[in-house]
């Protein structure tokens, strides 16, 4: 993306730059897990960081154009969406596998007693 393209984006005019002190790196465990999965797959040679940056950058651009927030949560939602895309593009997992597994986890989480670890049966 060139500076010229960015200069045309009016949605950014009204948003303040968020500030933070040197707080926690991740706000929720899922953010850390999505981050770690991506770095490990990159280190294992499943994709280059340039390939990742292109897909991740596109997710961020889409979210930005929709005026979605710019905090850590929005950032990692883009990260997660990009990770799902790249594992599918690289034929590591299919969209169907991910969707099916998600329903298994949902079922398991709904049918586990409070206080018990949630496991797939």
């Amino acid at each position: 993306m060139t500076p010229d393209m960015l200069a045309l984006d009016p949605t950014l005019e009204s948003i303040d730059i968020p500030r933070d002190e040197e707080g926690p790196v991740f706000e929720e465990p899922w953010q850390a897990q999505a981050f770690a999965l991506t770095v490990k797959l990159n280190e294992a040679g499943q994709f280059t960081w340039s390939e990742w940056a292109e897909i991740f950058g596109a997710e961020i651009a889409t979210a930005t154009s929709k005026g979605e927030g710019c905090g850590n949560n929005a950032y990692y939602l883009c990260w997660l969406a990009a990770l799902e895309k790249i594992v599918s593009h690289k034929n590591l997992l299919t969209v169907e596998q991910l969707a099916g597994r998600k329903e298994e986890w949902r079922y398991a989480s709904e049918h586990t007693e409070h206080g018990q670890p949630i496991e797939l049966k």
């Binding site: 997992l93 596998q97 991910l98 597994r101 998600k102 986890w105 409070h114 949630i118």
Partner: peptide, 23 residues
């Protein structure tokens, strides 16, 4: 057993658990 005990985990958590467990 087949009756529900609680709310499902948040969608983002389910998505990450799916990626992680399959990978």
């Amino acid at each position: 057993h087949d009756h529900k005990h609680g709310d499902p985990l948040p969608e983002t958590v389910l998505r990450v658990k799916s990626l992680e467990s399959l990978l």
